[in-house]
Amino acid sequence: MTISTNKSRPIYPGLSPDLNARSNIIVCDKGGAAAVTELFSRADTAFAKRTTILLAETLSDAEKQTVKTELSPASIEFFPTIPEGIARLREMLEAAPMGLRLYATGTEPLIGSVVQAAADYAIDHLSIRTEHRGSLMRRVQCVHCKGFIENVTTNPVTCAHCGLTLLVRDHYSRRLAAFQGVCIDAEVPGDVPPTEALYQ
């Protein structure tokens, strides 16, 4: 993870088990599942038994089977997309008591969506244990038209909604679960630095 001087840029310290929690929910994608395997290796079987994993990424049946074996005895539910995984998370949080510990691991858009949803249930973002895995792609909000651009891997990036060329900043909004993109050639239109694939 690149170090940023921007204070709003989230940091993901890595997963560690809270052995006292009475139940755990882990939201992850395919890449994050490897971090969950490592997390389980640092805890006992009882920890895994208390855990529900929501895996939000499209997987083949064979891949699902592998993950299931890898992560048993935790119960695991599969969702093809992040929004579908988050919808299930919300359902679970609605009924959950204190003593639940939330984990998120995978790409930043995935972790950000978990933190964003959890805030609606008054879960402090610092109490969510997070680990970044996989692509560095970002979710970006165009500060001009307010549209969201998903899976951004380059800087600058063209706004998918208003067409402006945006500088992707490290300025992050937890509420929006997005980095801020600001018009890069406002002074001299067309004066745009070369596009770099910064967030592969």
């Binding site: 809270d18 006292n20 929690a21 009475r22 204190m98 003593g99 639940l100 510990r101 402090d124 610092l126 109490s127």
Partner: peptide, 10 residues
Amino acid sequence: AELLGWPSEN
């Protein structure tokens, strides 16, 4: 609180 799994933030 800790033993009941309450996060320290709460």
